[in-house]
């Protein structure tokens, strides 16, 4: 259907978006790469000089890098497990006939719409505070000592908050996928005497596999760059206990003004994210051909 004229119109119409996106990505990324090879500190302007890969050597051998890499992986991994398992269970639950199911679904997905800074401060103060928080009171009901969450289990606290925020995302997507499951297939399996457990493992779970992959990949992209929750609660501490790579780069750039080092860290973060992105883009690209 596309004539030469309409192809040309198509090109002209899609060009502005592609050009602005290209400028937005390519120019800063090029600058980041360039900076990462410089000694460049905002506190000593005019002293920039080419130092080769020294920034990378410093960044990659810095104990803070390993600590933050470990924290990043732990945070992403834990939140993924919690949200995917929880998402499947809640999805199955919400797929059943329930009194007032529509309203219940609204309540379950609500946390996704809460802005990250609100999420973090409400959990930190109203729920996890060791003196007046809700959890401390619940612990006291059972005669247990209150946990000082952000002192004794800082990373766990961050994981809990972020999981709460992302659980609804997994629920929404897995529930959508569950609702497209062919009921006849399930009924046929039931006729053949399959129990709920084998129906789940042989019919439901394979049907969900693509949706689960999508959840894992998209969440990973966002979870690699968790920032606001750390920024307003722990500031990366105590020590480096809750510093992830995104936060480490932020402290180097905007608190220590080490542009060169921060740029090297930024490039490392880009490479990490790209490992995940390749899989996601392939998966979605396959879907486009259909």
């Amino acid at each position: 259907m596309s004539t030469r004229a309409s192809t040309l119109t198509g090109r002209i119409m899609s060009a502005p978006s592609i050009i602005v996106l290209f400028l937005w990505m390519a120019v800063p990324l090029g600058m980041t790469i360039y900076f990462s090879f410089l000694r460049y500190n905002l506190l000593s302007p005019g002293m920039e000089e080419w130092i080769g890969t020294l920034n990378y050597e410093f960044f990659l051998t810095d104990p803070a890098f390993f600590a933050s890499l470990a924290n990043t992986l732990l945070l992403v991994g834990s939140v993924l497990v919690i949200t995917v398992v929880g998402g499947i269970l809640l999805g199955l639950m919400l797929d059943q006939p329930i009194f007032g199911r529509g309203i219940l679904r609204l309540l379950v997905i609500a946390p996704f719409f809460i802005m990250p800074t609100v999420n973090a401060l409400v959990w930190k103060n109203l729920l996890m505070d060791p003196v007046s928080g809700m959890f401390a009171w619940i612990a006291s009901l059972f005669g247990l000592p209150a946990i000082d969450w952000f002192t004794n289990a800082p990373l766990t606290s961050i994981i809990i908050m972020v999981s709460w925020q992302w659980l609804p995302f997994a629920v929404l997507i897995l529930l959508t996928a569950l609702q497209s499951l062919d009921r006849d297939q399930k009924e046929a399996a039931q006729m053949d005497g399959a129990g709920p457990v084998s129906i789940f493992f042989y019919i439901t779970l394979p049907h969900l596999s693509r949706a689960i992959t999508v959840v894992v990949l998209i969440e990973t992209i966002f979870l690699l760059t968790v920032f606001a929750e750390i920024f307003v609660t722990t500031g990366g501490g105590p020590g480096l206990a809750t510093t992830n790579i995104a936060f480490l780069v932020y402290t180097q750039a905007l608190l220590q003004f080490d542009v060169g080092g921060a740029s090297a860290g930024g490039i490392v973060a880009v490479i990490l994210a790209n490992i995940v992105a390749i899989f996601l883009i392939r998966l979605i690209g396959k879907n486009l051909d259909k």
């Binding site: 860290g265 930024g266 880009v270 990490l272 994210a273």
Partner: peptide
């Protein structure tokens, strides 16, 4: 078109810290 769409998607995969410094400056 397909390549352009996937390329657009790939820009979304860029962690913001990767471009924080130049954008800030």
């Amino acid at each position: 078109t397909k390549d352009a769409l996937l390329w657009m998607l790939s820009t979304k995969m860029m962690p913001p810290v990767g471009v924080l410094v130049p954008i800030y400056l």
